[in-house]
Design a binder for these strands. Structure first.
Lengths: 156, 156
DNA sequence: TACCCATTGGTCAGAGATAGTCAACAAGCC
DNA sequence: GGCTTGTTGACTATCTCTGACCAATGGGTA
């Protein structure tokens, strides 16, 4: 079954080739495929999601763009596993701290980075109701792990 | 994808080189880039703002000029100033990114740390209503800056 | 000195150019 | 039919650029 989203996905992947990143123009791409611009967002959300090893950056306004960065999954399998399985929808502060400590022990991160991460996910930092806090913490933690996994090869 | 503002910014930075300041003539610059004079103000406001480490001085009338000064900062004092004044109750993603970029340029943080911080304060990360997002982002950012400022003495 | 006015930069609202979000509808697949 | 996936359009958010109008400076002139 070959559907529009698949074509767009294939086109983007072909554009990327072996490069670590590619830059698109949403409007132009939508015009090229004769679809609504939001269709591009759908493809990005479903085929180039963080869990699938991609990071999306974009800018609006004149000269706007959408940039897709690829993560080297082989190299960072541990982080990706953490992101997709090790952290659920929510995570408590103590669990997050333990996870960060493990990263430090395994030398995935340095002291300064560990301090940054702890600060970002601290209970005191996340102003929200208790359960919301844990959800938020999970999101922040995942996002940072993704940055660790994907950032190394790309100038962000 | 580069746009007029980017070109003007690049030109000014090239003019500066390693010097601590540079002097421009708004009209002449606008003529050089075939744009409205106010476009220069736009570039100054968005690319050479105080948050980005610059100070603008200017004089009108005959022999008028625009002078751009690069600020040199003391790391700890800068961080503390950012925490107490530079960041309010809320901060937008673009402002937060600019702030992090500046820390990176000034070598207060390294590339990996910058990526971590950007990830933590990204719009995509902070799942909340728009205004709540900005408040949350300010809290996360401040918390991380505090970690940077006080990090050396804190137990790992 | 007092005033005029040419010259130069500042401000701001609005238009234009992109991209993001979300709810509703459509198409496929048990 | 009901669930999942795909598609769209209306509305929103953000970034860029411009022009009309405002403000300041300094030289010229009465």
């Amino acid at each position: 079954m070959s559907v529009l989203s698949d074509h767009i996905e294939a086109f983007i992947k072909a554009s990327m080739g072996d490069l670590p990143q590619v830059e698109l123009c949403r409007q132009a791409l939508a015009a090229q495929f004769h679809c609504a611009p939001s269709q591009i967002n759908y493809v990005l959300a479903t085929r180039f999601a963080p869990d699938l090893g991609y990071v999306i950056q974009s800018k609006r306004g004149g000269g706007g763009y959408i940039r897709i960065l690829r993560i080297n999954i082989d190299k960072e399998a541990y982080l990706m596993a953490l992101i997709s399985q090790g952290i659920g929808e929510a995570i408590r502060e103590s669990q997050a701290r333990a996870l960060i400590d493990r990263l430090y022990e395994r030398e995935v991160i340095q002291g300064q980075e560990a301090r940054l991460m702890r600060a970002a996910v601290a209970d005191q930092t996340l102003k929200a109701a208790c359960h919301e806090k844990d959800i938020l913490r999970a999101a922040v933690l995942k996002s940072m792990l993704l940055a660790l996994a994907g950032g190394a090869e790309v100038e962000v």
